[in-house]
Write a protein that binds this DNA or RNA. Structure first.
Lengths: 261, 261
DNA sequence: CAGTGGTCTAGACCACGCG
DNA sequence: GCGTGGTCTAGACCACTGG
């Protein structure tokens, strides 16, 4: 089992056996004797080392997995999790000066950290606004919206899903309701349509993913998501877009600038 | 088992039995037939209903727990999780006009949502700056800092731990290095000392809690944390404080305002 | 006390990966 | 084919909660 320093179970301790085992393994990871990408000893090796039943070992391993420290790969083994490149979302990512350069925010930022950006499953349709979205857009209960759904990937690995809602009255028949929103993205199009943007509000939650989200982002167990809802306001105060995004928490650091005023 | 509509296992399906069971229960929760606070059928009831072994039921229940949908209470049962009151952290929470009113941000905001705020385990000491903190404060490697640790509670339930670091050179011998930082908190004291605050930078991550964090915040399994690191800058650009906080993700929505500039 | 969930055992068969 | 993890069974004893 390599250079690991795994003690034996202390039968006198009142700490559960599986917790003692997960403590040992967690200690090896935190001490760096098990590095990201390293293989954790197999179940059979641990069974032999500790002299316990298989389910006890599995419970210890599940503990580590639910803490986001390891991933199990069927037929290969259990590995210490290695983090993908982290994308930093800065407060100024929607500044007009970036938009004017013609690249959508995601592409520019991802190239900036040396990753290969891509976008897939772009779907655009017109639909009834969900209630919470309608509220944020200050629309009536029967309002129609253009809905743009897409998924963002870095180096082929999905990191974020996003759904934008724009009042149909604004976007219908424009490039916003076509899959390719053009240079600078939909914010550039909104400004061309005369909706000069003034500010954005972002609400951020963190939670465990639903089953669908875990599938769409290929999330291993133990990785939470950021759920970010951004509302874009035009000068004059009208809400012109709501963007509902779900991001893999280990692909992102969100970064904000607050004036002391 | 009440009004629940729990189907039987489909033996023809290739979906694992325990996943079929957790799908059923998840459906009852999402449909609202199991409301927050409701008791999920007991293991023995589920064993009888589905005719499977206990470990299979337990695996299904663990699935729901790791998704943050339920909590198990030893000797009582498994319950649908009910959310505590959510505290919204707004962009303007450190605006000077609030500080001038003399209430620290946490107290004022919590009373605003009808909760009873409290703070405990306040510890203050002087220590060597950890490397990452020293970097953020632009201090040398042997720099000393005043460290202020505390835990915030709403209605007696812990929601956040915070550790502030202030260069010792600034804070030594002032009220900042005493447990009670006085009206308006340490930001008010820093300004009185001539460090007029200009802006704050916040970095936000989400992840599963460590064991220590889960204990300090009494987090049930399946609840991630926000890890927020805020740096306070004085006019002139000097970093005068770093605050490292860990927040229960289901007690908070973070809210930010971004100018379109 | 009865009922609940928490831990643990000692097996079984299966599906996946890799050589 | 062999070793890996994934699922499942059928028991056991324990600790906690509540009447």
């Amino acid at each position: 089992m390599g250079n690991l320093t795994l003690p034996l179970i202390d039968p006198a301790s009142d700490r559960a056996v599986f917790k003692q085992i997960s403590d040992h393994l967690r200690g090896e990871i935190e001490a760096g004797r098990l590095q990201p990408g390293d293989k954790v000893p197999s179940e059979s090796q641990l069974i032999e080392h500790y002299g316990v039943a298989r389910m006890t070992i599995r419970q210890a391993l599940r503990e580590l997995q639910s803490e986001g420290l390891t991933v199990a790969e069927h037929g290969r083994g259990v590995f210490v999790r290695s983090r993908p490149p982290v994308r930093r979302l800065g407060s100024d990512r929607f500044a007009r000066r970036h938009r004017d350069h013609g690249k959508a925010a995601f592409i520019a930022e991802t190239e900036g950290i040396g990753g290969k950006p891509s976008v897939d499953s772009i779907q655009v349709d017109e639909t009834q606004a969900p209630a919470d979205i309608g509220d944020r857009l200050s629309l009536g209960s029967d309002a129609r919206v253009i809905r743009r759904s897409r998924r963002y990937l870095i180096n082929g690995h999905p990191v974020e899903t996003a759904v934008s809602y724009i009042p149909a009255e604004i976007a219908r028949g424009t490039q916003i309701s076509t899959p390719d929103s053009g240079p600078g993205g939909i914010y550039a199009r909104l400004e061309e349509l005369g909706h000069r943007l003034d500010h954005f509000d972002e609400d951020i939650r963190a939670r465990m993913p639903t089953r669908d989200e875990a599938r769409a982002l290929k999330l291993p167990p133990g990785v939470p998501v950021f759920h970010l809802v951004r509302t874009a306001f035009a000068e004059g105060g009208r809400a012109v877009e709501v963007c509902d995004t779900v991001m893999s928490s280990d692909a992102y650091v969100l970064s904000y600038h607050l004036p002391a005023r």
